[in-house]
Design a protein around this nucleic acid. Structure first.
Lengths: 211, 211
DNA sequence: CTAAAACCGTACCGTACCGTACGGTTCGCC
DNA sequence: GGCGAACCGTACGGTACGGTACGGTTTTAG
C-alpha cells in the first residue's frame, strides 16, 4: 500500500497528475480518440500501471474530471460587498471566470465526454461534472447574492431562482453552441463585454433602485 | 432508381420513416447502444437495406436528425403582434414550445449523440442539430421581436443580442443539466411558469414603458 | 404466371479497443 | 552489491461493432 496505489478519491501523486494531464491533452487534441493505448503512449507509462492506479477506463476519466475541477477552482469571492460598485465588480469577475471556463477547450472536451457518458447509464461522470461545474458555482455565487440582498442592493425571494437567471444571462447559448462544434470566436475582450452586459441586465432585473 | 434509393436529402418513404422512428426509439431507450444490428432488429429490416438507403451509420444518424427536426417544426408565429398582450403571448408560446422540445427525451438523446459526434471531426451532425435547433428558432423568433420593435413595444439595437438574451432567460441551466443526466422534474405546469417568468424578465429588460 | 427487383435474416470479415500477462529495466532500501 | 517492488513496453485474448455477402422470401410489373 505504498503511495502508488489506487486513488479513488485521494489526491493523485505527481506522476499520476502527469498522467491525468496527458489525458486532458489527448481529449483536447484528439477529440474522442481517447483510447487507453493512446493515454499510455502519451504519458509514457504502461497500460498495466493505468489499470493499477485507476482500476479501469471509467476510473481514469473520473480522476481526470476531478483533477481538472480541482485546478479550476478560483479564489473565494468576498461576500462583504457593501456597495453596488463592489457587488457588480464581484458579479463581473464571476461571469468572466465562468465564461472563460466553459469556452476553454479542456472544459468543452470534458463536458462532451461526460455527456456521452451520461447516455449510457453505466457511470456517473455527468453528475461529477455537474457537481464541480454548475452546482459548485451556484454554491459559490449564492452567498454573494445573499450578501447583496442583506445590504439592500438586491431584491429576490428565492436565491436559487435568482442564480439561475444570472446563469442564463451569462451563458445564453454559448455552451450548447460550443459543445455542438460551432466555431465561435470568443476572445478575452468579448468575454469581458458579455460579462458586463449580463451583470447590467441582472441588476436591472434584481437591483434595488435605492436603499 | 425506384423510390427506395438513397435519400440524402429527399423526404424519406413511409417505410424509411418507420426505420428512423426505430432509431429515435432506440436512442431514447438504450442511450448509446445504438448499433446498426439493433436498429435492423428493431425496425425489422436487414442491415443491407440500411446501408443501401442511408449509405453508412453517419447517413442514418443524419437522416434521423432531419426527420426529428421536420416533425418538431411548429406553426408559424404571427408577426403582426400589435399590442403588448399579443406580443407577450407569442413569446410565451415560443418559450413554452422550446422548453418542451429541449426537455423531451428524444431531443436530449439526439443532442447527446450530436455532441459526442462533434468531438470526432468526422461528421457534421453537430452543425445539423444547431441549424435545426438553436439557429432555426432564432430565425423564427427574430421577426416577432422586430415586429414588436416596429410597433414600439420593444427597444433594442441588435436583434441577435436581444434574441440571445431571450434564449438565456428561457433556457438558463436546463439543457446542460439534462444533457449531463441531472434528473430534473419538468412538467407542463412548470414549463408554463418558467416561460411566463422568462417573458416577464425579457419585457422588463427590453420593453418600452409606453408608446 | 413468370421474371426481376427489393428485401429479410443471418453468417461472416476486419478492425478497434478494453483489459491482462509477461519479460526486461529502473530505483529504493538494506 | 544484492534484493524486491514498481514500472515500462509490448504482445495477446476476447469482444463489440461497422460494413459486406448470400441464400431464401416477398413484392411488383407485365
Amino acid at each position: 500500500m505504498a503511495s502508488g496505489s489506487a486513488i479513488h478519491d485521494a489526491t493523485p501523486s505527481v506522476r499520476q497528475q502527469a498522467v491525468l494531464d496527458a489525458v486532458l491533452d489527448l481529449m483536447v487534441e484528439e477529440g474522442d480518440q481517447l483510447t487507453m493505448d493512446a493515454v499510455a503512449r502519451r504519458a509514457s507509462c504502461s497500460k498495466e500501471t493505468l489499470y493499477k492506479w485507476f482500476r479501469d477506463r471509467d476510473g481514469l476519466l473520473t480522476a481526470t474530471v476531478r483533477w481538472q475541477a480541482s485546478r479550476v477552482r478560483t479564489g473565494q469571492y468576498e461576500a462583504h460587498a457593501l456597495d453596488v460598485a463592489a457587488l457588480s465588480e464581484s458579479l463581473r469577475d464571476f461571469a468572466t471566470t465562468w465564461l472563460g471556463v466553459i469556452s476553454s477547450r479542456a472544459s468543452i472536451a470534458l463536458n462532451r465526454i461526460a455527456i456521452g457518458d451520461a447516455a449510457s447509464r453505466k457511470s456517473n461522470l455527468g453528475s461529477i461534472v455537474l457537481a464541480n461545474g454548475r452546482f459548485a458555482i451556484g454554491d459559490r455565487l449564492k452567498p454573494v447574492l445573499e450578501a447583496g440582498r442583506a445590504a439592500g442592493l438586491l431584491a429576490f425571494d428565492d436565491t436559487e431562482t435568482a442564480f439561475r437567471t444570472f446563469f442564463g444571462l451569462v451563458g445564453r447559448d454559448v455552451q450548447i453552441r460550443l459543445l455542438l462544434g460551432d466555431a465561435i470566436t470568443f476572445d478575452a475582450a468579448e468575454i469581458r463585454r458579455d460579462a458586463a452586459r449580463a451583470v447590467e441586465q441582472f441588476l436591472a432585473l434584481y437591483g434595488q433602485p435605492k436603499r
